[in-house]
Design a protein around this nucleic acid. Structure first.
Length: 347
DNA sequence: AATCCGGGGAT
DNA sequence: ATCCCAGGATT
């Protein structure tokens, strides 16, 4: 039996029952694929259900605001995915009359849709013969063929895409793609792969050469940046002083509180002195309580976050600042660390 | 080619 | 602690 026949046969009897596999609607598949980028199936699943329920069609999605989308996306991370989705939904609604594309060459033009996602949507919704290459596929191919080229080098990306194209089942590309990823997720796992139950172990380079821990190869990871955020909690009766973040940096266009970032750690009083020197509040507030530092670890940054609770009135509001009551807070998309802190603070 | 963009689970 | 997850955009 061929490579593809082995894995698709295995897939048919071992696959998980995942909701986005029960449709060929390209809008629904797009929704699932964007949500699942760099995201585990278990983590993305509840978001998939929520988005599909709230926005059953691309026209519904297109009618949403960015605040709506970011709020529903809250906690999932990589928020540019949500912002790109809105741009794409609006474009599809206008220029494709609400018919979400199914062809690779159209899909690849859309914001937030790269080679992987275009191939996934095209093969799952229309059986177009495009091979997907995601983290699972890199692993399966590297081990099976004994490819030691790093998966994140430009040469490696080309080589793995070419290899995936070569083994693609041209009769059933969608099924084949699903099978490759499912094998990587359930059997050919990063740590402790279940080679004993693998349907292609008898021809697998890594299994035969005891090299599963060496493959795939990956270029060294980038260093983590240390950052120090000092948040100010200012209340005005029942309202909290909030801040809308700018379009750059992390958490673009989301909501947090006024804050000062420093290059080194500082205590609350040093931060207050700094705030006074730059006339951050227009006057000198008083500290009532300090909480932190809270460590918040992201892929490229380690955030050290202090919360400084202030006794203060008559704050001179900057343009991006506003007071929000609890009802208003419910609709604001916040970084998870801010959301959790405020939830705790208000209870 | 390198860096940025989140949050969480597994080991 | 480290790795990695149905990656893509930006510089």
């Amino acid at each position: 039996m061929s490579f593809s026949n082995e894995i698709t046969s295995w897939y048919n009897s071992n696959k998980r029952d995942l909701p986005w596999r029960n449709t060929t609607d390209s809008y629904t598949i797009w929704l699932s694929e964007i949500i699942l980028q760099q995201t585990r199936v278990e983590q993305g699943m509840p978001y998939f259900y929520r988005f599909l329920e709230r926005y059953p069609t691309v026209a519904d999605f297109a009618a949403a605001t960015e605040d709506d989308i970011l709020k529903l996306w809250q906690g999932l991370g990589y928020y540019s995915r949500g912002r790109n989705m809105l741009a794409t939904a609006r474009l599809v609604n206008e220029h494709y009359k609400g018919r979400f594309p199914t062809q690779y060459n159209e899909l690849i033009k859309l914001k937030g849709v790269g080679e992987y996602t275009a191939a996934a949507i095209a093969s799952f919704s229309a059986n177009e013969a495009k091979a997907v290459v995601d983290g699972n596929v890199y692993r399966v191919l590297a081990r099976y063929f004994g490819i030691s080229e790093p998966i994140n080098s430009p040469a490696g990306k080309k080589l793995f895409q070419q290899t995936a194209n070569d083994v693609l089942n041209m009769e059933h590309p969608g099924l084949h793609n699903q099978a490759m990823m499912e094998l990587g997720a359930l059997v050919c796992k990063p740590k402790n792969p279940a080679c004993g139950i693998c349907p292609i172990k008898t021809d697998c380079y890594a299994f035969l050469n005891n090299a599963t821990t060496q493959l795939p190869q990956k270029l060294k990871t980038v260093k983590v940046r240390e950052r120090y955020f000092h948040y100010f909690l200012v209340t005005n009766g029942s309202e909290i002083l909030m801040n809308k973040r700018g379009p750059k940096d992390i958490w673009a266009n989301m909501y947090d509180m006024p804050m000062i970032e420093t290059s080194e750690n500082m205590n609350a009083y040093e931060v207050l002195n700094l705030a006074e020197s730059i006339e951050y509040f227009g006057h000198t507030p008083q500290v009532s309580e300090v909480s932190g530092p809270h460590k918040h670890v992201l892929t490229h940054q380690r955030l050290n976050i202090n919360f400084i609770i202030l006794n203060s009135r008559e704050i001179k509001l900057k343009q991006e600042w506003f007071y929000a009551n609890e009802e208003k807070l419910k609709n604001l998309a916040m970084p998870q660390i801010i959301f959790l802190f405020l939830t705790n603070f208000l209870n």
